[in-house]
Amino acid sequence: LRLEVKLGQGCFGEVWMGTWNGTTRVAIKTLKPGTMSPEAFLQEAQVMKKLRHEKLVQLYAVVSEEPIYIVTEYMSKGSLLDFLKGETGKYLRLPQLVDMAAQIASGMAYVERMNYVHRDLRAANILVGENLVCKVADFGLARLIEDNEYTARQGAKFPIKWTAPEAALYGRFTIKSDVWSFGILLTELTTKGRVPYPGMVNREVLDQVERGYRMPCPPECPESLHDLMCQCWRKEPEERPTFEYLQAFL
């Protein structure tokens, strides 16, 4: 395994491009020591290896001592969030954005069929390849993070704006909380990567959403798509659509 080009840095580690087995181009995620327990990670990795779908980033291998390494397929255009905010983002029109959403829903419909939960679905965790191919990455890892700023769910590192209220408040993460996050991801797509709930801080978002506030229809977004977002944001988790439905609708 060779680490060649550093692609990015996040709160919990770095991402590199490299070569595996001398020939395969891969992405390598390294986790800061202390982010998660190697034992817990190894268990999760076994499950992650079983998830194989064309719209999920394929896991190739893991190094399960500290520092933990995760070796996955390489996606040339990086994260969907950076892609939307970058040069190419300007030229993306609604049909392409909807197609990308459908690809993500397709990957998540598979996660749904496998009775698995992602827990951290957002544009930053979707990767883009050639020809606007989108794949879901980092599934299941969020559960293992041991950082206090994260586990408190009120901490600075927790993605509260993407998280369903029952998950943020009571830790009830299910495929239905993933559906909520998918609704937020749809706003990221239609606004080219704007942060959700602009002008609001995490605490406010939690309070307002509890009181029934939902983001309005983004500019140039059809009402039918906003309606779909609002279905994803129904207060009762069981009233939210399935990913199978979302995939078919898109």
Results as ranks from 00 to 15, higher is better:
L169S: 09
R153C: 09
W162E: 02
Q103L: 03
F83T: 11
I126C: 11
P218L: 08
P95S: 08
L92E: 09
V62T: 11
M108Q: 06
T242F: 14
G171T: 04
Y110C: 04
L94R: 08
F173H: 04
L225A: 10
G212T: 04
L144P: 14
T23H: 13
Q58N: 12
P38T: 13
L59F: 00
H226K: 12
P198Q: 07
L97M: 12
G22L: 11
W162P: 01
V5D: 14
Y213P: 02
L84C: 13
P38I: 08
I160F: 12
K6A: 15
R93A: 06
A101P: 04
V71T: 12
A142M: 04
Q103S: 10
S76H: 11
Q58H: 13
R240Q: 00
E87R: 14
T35M: 10
W20Q: 14
P216K: 09
H226E: 09
G86Y: 06
A27E: 01
G13P: 02
Y60D: 06
V5A: 15
S64Q: 07
I175G: 15
G129W: 04
Y69Q: 05
L94N: 07
D82V: 07
Q231F: 14
A109K: 13
P198F: 08
E39S: 12
Q231I: 12
L246K: 04
V133H: 14
P38Y: 12
V117L: 07
E149R: 03
A156R: 03
A152Y: 03
Y116R: 03
T163V: 02
R93N: 07
Q46N: 14
V71C: 10
P159Y: 00
K135L: 10
P216G: 09
A152F: 03
R194C: 07
P241E: 09
I175V: 15
K49L: 02
E244R: 07
F83Y: 09
G18H: 04
Q46T: 09
P38W: 14
P237Q: 14
E238A: 12
A109P: 00
Q231E: 11
V62P: 00
E239K: 13
T23V: 14
G129I: 06
V57R: 15
L94Y: 05
E39G: 10
M108T: 13
Y150H: 03
I70N: 03
P218E: 10
L42F: 07
P38E: 14
K135T: 14
R153A: 07
V209I: 14
W16Y: 15
R214T: 12
L144G: 12
Q103K: 15
E149N: 05
V71A: 08
E39D: 08
C232P: 02
L225H: 02
V111W: 15
I126R: 01
Q231T: 12
V71M: 06
E14D: 06
L144S: 13
R122F: 03
Y110E: 06
L141G: 00
D82L: 07
G10P: 00
T23F: 11
I160D: 01
R119L: 02
C232L: 12
E66G: 10
K49Y: 04
E239Q: 13
P196D: 01
E239A: 12
G140M: 00
L189V: 08
N115Q: 11
V62D: 06
T30A: 05
M215S: 06
A156E: 04
M48D: 01
R172A: 06
